[in-house]
């Protein structure tokens, strides 16, 4: 059934953005009910997953009015996300695992706008065009937002590593 197949990522996206399990569950339920209602209007040329992401994102916008404002405020800089250029291999070992866990906590503390973009990009592996379509944002804003989110994490990590030395 549709819910079984899609509940994991629908809930996960809502949870990552809203940061609250109960609210995420409410949002996921509402998303499925809306999808069920709008199923006759669903155009087969769009991926069902993308359509669901859009519903969840819109519900998150409704729950967090500041989320849309934050996303719009990102603007479009000349800088671009260079995620695909980062092909270096991550370190292994205890220290790397500790660093990774620390970064996971830092990601959870980012503003909702960044968390939304990062979840769509890294947990759902969506291309920029699809993220722009899901969030109703220009592609430049998506790239800038991702770049800034990662820069913030990199900068925090740098400070963290310097403090450890």
């Amino acid at each position: 059934m549709l819910v079984v197949e899609h509940q994991a990522y629908v809930f996960n996206l809502a949870y990552r953005v809203l940061g609250n399990e109960q609210e995420a569950e409410d949002t996921a339920q509402e998303a499925f009910v809306r999808a069920w209602q709008s199923l006759p209007r669903f155009r087969a040329q769009a991926r069902f997953g993308t359509w669901m992401y859009r519903i969840v994102t819109n519900l998150c916008y409704n729950r967090l009015p500041r989320l849309r404002r934050e996303l719009s405020a990102i603007g479009e800089d000349e800088i671009e996300d260079h995620a695909d250029l980062q092909t270096g291999k991550a370190d292994d070992g205890l220290e790397a695992a500790e660093r990774r866990a620390w970064l996971h906590r830092q990601i959870e503390e980012l503003p909702e706008a960044y968390r939304l973009l990062l979840t769509l990009r890294y947990q759902r592996n969506l291309p920029y065009e699809e993220i722009a379509s899901v969030t109703s944002l220009p592609m430049g804003t998506v790239k800038t937002g991702l770049f800034r989110a990662k820069e913030r994490l990199r900068s925090a990590l740098e400070t963290y590593e310097e403090a450890r030395l």
Binding site: N12, E25, A28, F32, G88, H104, Q123, R154
Partner: peptide, 28 residues
């Protein structure tokens, strides 16, 4: 800087997925 960015990318790609609550299906 590249090393830290690689670590960030790695952390982003390995973010654990929050499991959907068991009751979600029945609620839907």
């Amino acid at each position: 800087a590249d090393r830290w960015m690689t670590a960030v990318e790695d952390a982003l790609r390995t973010m654990p997925e929050a499991p959907a609550p068991a009751a979600l299906r029945s609620r839907v």
